[in-house]
């Protein structure tokens, strides 16, 4: 028997059905977002970072020294891998995480207050600047948090923790009437 395991999103069961109205504070879950991890060879961190940031389509998320999550809005997962192979060559280890991670976009005037309930970093605009990103603990789940807009935060979480994080975020956002839906 042939099964197609690719067709089920990690949050399929949570977000299935007719989309509810979008409120001011909204959690948007990316559908098949192209994500990859890049780990630079020792000593080549600066060269890899230069190569990656020279491409405007790629969004770099800082994980640690010489390590990034690369998110692409335009590429398919295979396209992203091809692009990264061309950019980095043998200078870095590249692993496709499109099926391994889930991207959630939290936006709205109260996004910062929602996140402040579970995240241990200072989210003040002066401390967490636009374009900033870091690995952080949300509740007890390790995520990568990035600030992509004035009131927009993107959370990248391991697939197996996505449901748990989603439930946590909805609980954290209940006081602010947080809504959630797939992005397309």
């Amino acid at each position: 028997m042939v099964r197609d395991y690719n067709n089920r999103h990690a949050l399929d069961q949570k977000l299935r059905g007719t989309p509810k109205p979008v409120n001011a504070d909204h959690l948007e879950v990316g559908h098949w977002q192209a994500i990859a991890t890049v780990l630079a060879q020792v000593g080549l961190e600066a060269a890899v970072q230069r190569a990656l940031s020279s491409t405007p389509e790629l969004s770099l998320r800082y994980c640690g020294p010489g390590e990034w999550l690369v998110v692409s809005e335009v590429d398919t997962p295979i396209g992203l891998m091809r692009r990264l192979d061309m950019l980095c060559g043998t200078q870095a280890h590249v692993v496709d995480q499109s099926d391994g991670r889930v991207l959630m976009r939290l936006s709205g005037p109260c996004a910062r207050r929602v996140l402040a309930k579970g995240v241990g970093v200072d989210l003040h605009p002066g401390a967490f600047a636009l374009g900033g990103s870091t690995n952080v603990l949300c509740g007890h789940i390790a995520i990568n948090l990035a600030r992509t807009g004035e009131d927009i935060f993107e959370l990248i979480v391991s697939r197996s923790f996505a449901e748990s994080l989603f439930d946590d975020l909805m609980t954290m956002g209940r006081a602010f009437d947080l809504s959630a839906a797939f992005s397309d």
Binding site: C63, G64, V136, L137
Partner: peptide, 9 residues
């Protein structure tokens, strides 16, 4: 100290 949930260094 191992920064497990951060940079993992």
């Amino acid at each position: 100290w191992h920064h497990v949930a951060g940079c993992r260094r």
